[in-house]
């Protein structure tokens, strides 16, 4: 029985039932923090689960919030979609205080979700989950030709890319010309 498991059970009810006086069992009840993504849906997550994220762990370790303060100040992650943040929170809860397995097969299979997850996980600095995600991304294109990879990862060819760039430049050029014209107009 690990100390973290005790921590979980003690946090939910009011008083821990007469737990054996084990030296490893911490008396401090577990603290919780709150996070939300782009959709503003707030998730309550234990500090133990949030330890997976080096970013959040760094933030909360210096705050010393009370339960009320934590509730009143959820961490906003406006750059992360709600469903992606849900996935991250679920993963952190599932792997709280556990040694992470060498493989994780529960990652999203759709590439759109996987790429968004990679960006979120990279931002939140969740090392193990990032490793699994990167492995999954690599597996997507194993044994595939460059053309197939382009299709799977939806990458434009250099020619398409150049054309798009030229188009963007043209537009930017036009806008700039418009602006200078406007500026010239102002000066008059």
């Amino acid at each position: 029985m690990s100390s973290t498991e005790q921590g979980t059970s003690s946090a939910a009810p009011a008083e821990p039932t007469t737990a054996p006086e084990s030296a490893a069992a911490p008396e401090v009840p577990e603290s919780f923090y709150y996070v939300h993504g782009k959709d503003k849906v707030v998730h309550k997550v234990s500090a133990g689960a949030l330890q997976h994220s080096a970013l959040i762990h760094g933030m909360i370790s210096n705050l010393g919030y009370t339960e009320e303060q934590a509730k009143a100040n959820p961490f906003p992650f406006e750059n992360i979609d709600g469903d992606i943040l849900q996935m991250v929170v679920d993963w952190c809860n599932q792997h709280k205080g556990k040694p992470t397995p060498p493989e994780d097969t529960n990652l999203p299979k759709q590439k759109e979700k996987l790429f968004d997850l990679v960006l979120a996980v990279n931002y939140l600095e969740i090392k193990e989950l990032l490793t699994y995600c990167c492995k999954q991304v690599a597996m997507m294109v194993k044994g595939k030709s460059p053309e197939e990879i382009r299709e799977i990862w939806m990458i434009p060819t250099d020619a398409e890319d150049e054309a798009a760039e030229k188009e963007a430049k043209k537009r930017a050029g036009k806008e700039a010309a418009g602006e200078t014209a406007a500026a010239a107009g102002d000066a008059k």
């Binding site: 990679v118 960006l119 990032l130 990458i155």
Partner: peptide, 24 residues
């Protein structure tokens, strides 16, 4: 939706680390 080409270098490096020689 995110695209693979906008991934940070660390991510791409890890992806390459998990790929075999032919894939790279």
């Amino acid at each position: 939706m995110a695209s693979i080409v906008e991934m940070p270098e660390l991510v791409l490096e890890k992806v390459i680390g998990f790929s075999d020689f032919k894939a790279v």
